[in-house]
Simulated scan of single mutants.
Amino acid sequence: MLIDTVGENLNLAEKVHGAANHVFVFLEIFAREGGIQSYVKDIFRAYSELKPGCRAEVFLLRDSSHCSNPFESDNLKFHYFQNQFSQIGRLTMAVALLKFLVYKRPQHVFCGHINLAVLIQTLCQPLGIPYTVLTYGKEVWEPLKKQEQRALASANSIWTISRYSRDRACAANGLDPQKIKMLACAIDSNKFIPGSKQPELVEKYGLDSTKVLMTVARLWSGDIYKGVDVTIRALPQIAKVFPEIKYLVIGRGDDQPRLAQLAKDLGVSDRVVFAGFVPTEELMAHYRLADAYIMPSQEGFGIVYLEAMTCGVPVLSGDDDGSADPLQDGKLGWRVPHRDPEAVAKACIEILQGNDQRCDGQWLREQAIAVFGMEAFQQRLQELLLS
C-alpha cells in the first residue's frame, strides 16, 4: 500500500516535469545488425519525430552504454544492462524495470521480443499496466512454450510486420487475429536512391558489360531458405538468353563453400561473384549495380525488397511469405515458388527484358515510398500509440 502511495505521488510529480508515457524493452539494438535491429531503429527514428507529448524510456538487456546511439534525446532515454553473466544482466534489468513501473506508472509498455514477454507480463499485470508485444518473424511461427503463449494472449495487443507473420503466429499459437496490429517495415527514401553504377565497384566485381542479378543475404547453412542456391541453379537457363549474366551475392556465412561448389558443378562459377560482407552504409551503391534483385525466399517481410525498389531496381521474391506486403501481392514485383529454379529463371528473363511496368525504376520507387516511406511509418506508429 505504501509503495503504491509513493508511486502515485512520484507519478504526479513526473507529470509536472514531463513523465515518460511509454516504456520499450528490447534484447539488443546497437550491439549487432539485423532485420529486427533495423526495424527497431526505424521505430526510434519515427518516435523522435512525434508530438512533444510522447516520451519513452528504453531498457536494453544486451547493449551497453558504450554503443553508439544516435537516438538519445529528451523524449527517448536509454538504460543499458549488458553483463558478461547473462542471468545477472536479466535480473538487474528486471529489478530496475519493476522499480520504474511501480514508481513512474507509464501508460504502456512495449515488449520488443517474445523472449521478454513472460517477464513483461509478470511485471505489468499485477500493476494493471497494459503491454504490447512486438513480433518480427520466425521467432513466433512455431508453437511457443505455454507461458509465452499466455503472455501473448494476455497482451493488450501484438504488433507484427506482415500479414504472413500474423497468420503463421496465430495458427501456431492460437492467437486472436483481432489482437494483432500491423506495423510494417519502413524504407528511408533519403538513404536509398537511384543512381549510376560506380566504376570502381564495376571493376572490383568484374561486371563491365554484364547484366547483374543481386542478392543480399546471410550465407548460413541454417538460412538456405534465402534461395541463393535456387538462383544459382537458374543461371544456366538464364545464360541461354543473356550470355553476359552475372550473379552478385552479398553476405557471408558457413554456407558459402557449398554454394561455390554448386556453381562449379553447374559450370557457372565464373558467373557468381561472392562479395562477402558489405556494411549497411555501402549497400546503396551495391544496389545500383543490379539490374534485378533476386531472392526467392521465405521472409517475414523482406526489407531488402524495399531497399532495392527504392533504388529503382526490379525485384523477385517467393510467393508464400511476408514479401507479399512489400511487393503488394505482385503489383510491384515478381513472385515465384521459392524452391523452383525454372520459375526463377523464367521470371529473371522477363525482368531483364524490361518490358513490364514493374521494371520502371522511377515508378517502383514512387510506389514503394507511398506505402512504406518513413512518413507513412510515422503516421502508422502514431495511430497505434493512440489506439
Rank of each mutant, 00 (worst) to 15 (best):
L2V: 14
E8A: 15
N11L: 00
L12C: 02
A19T: 01
H22S: 08
F26K: 00
F26I: 02
G35W: 11
G35E: 11
V40D: 10
K41T: 10
S48Q: 13
E49M: 11
C54I: 01
P70L: 05
L76R: 11
F78D: 14
Q84V: 00
I88T: 13
G89F: 03
A94R: 06
P106W: 02
C111R: 06
G112Q: 06
L116R: 03
A117F: 06
A117W: 05
Q121W: 09
C124I: 04
C124R: 00
Q125C: 12
Q125N: 08
P126M: 00
G137Y: 11
K138H: 15
Q147M: 03
A151R: 01
A153S: 13
N156T: 10
D167N: 13
R168F: 12
C170I: 06
A172Y: 01
N173P: 01
K181C: 05
A184H: 01
A186T: 13
N190K: 09
Y205C: 02
D208R: 15
K211S: 13
V212N: 00
V212I: 14
L219K: 05
W220Q: 09
G222D: 14
Y225D: 13
R233S: 10
K240R: 15
P243C: 11
P243N: 13
P243H: 14
R252C: 12
G253V: 06
G267Q: 01
G267E: 02
A275I: 08
F277N: 07
V278G: 03
V278Q: 04
P279I: 04
T280F: 05
E281V: 03
E282I: 02
A285M: 04
A290N: 08
M295I: 08
Q298H: 14
G302P: 05
E307Y: 05
E307A: 01
M309L: 05
P314F: 06
D319L: 09
G322A: 11
A324K: 11
D329R: 07
D340H: 08
E342L: 11
K346M: 07
A347C: 09
I349T: 05
I349W: 01
I349E: 00
N355D: 13
C359K: 05
A368F: 05
I369L: 13
A370G: 10
M374L: 15
A376N: 06
R380I: 03
L381I: 05
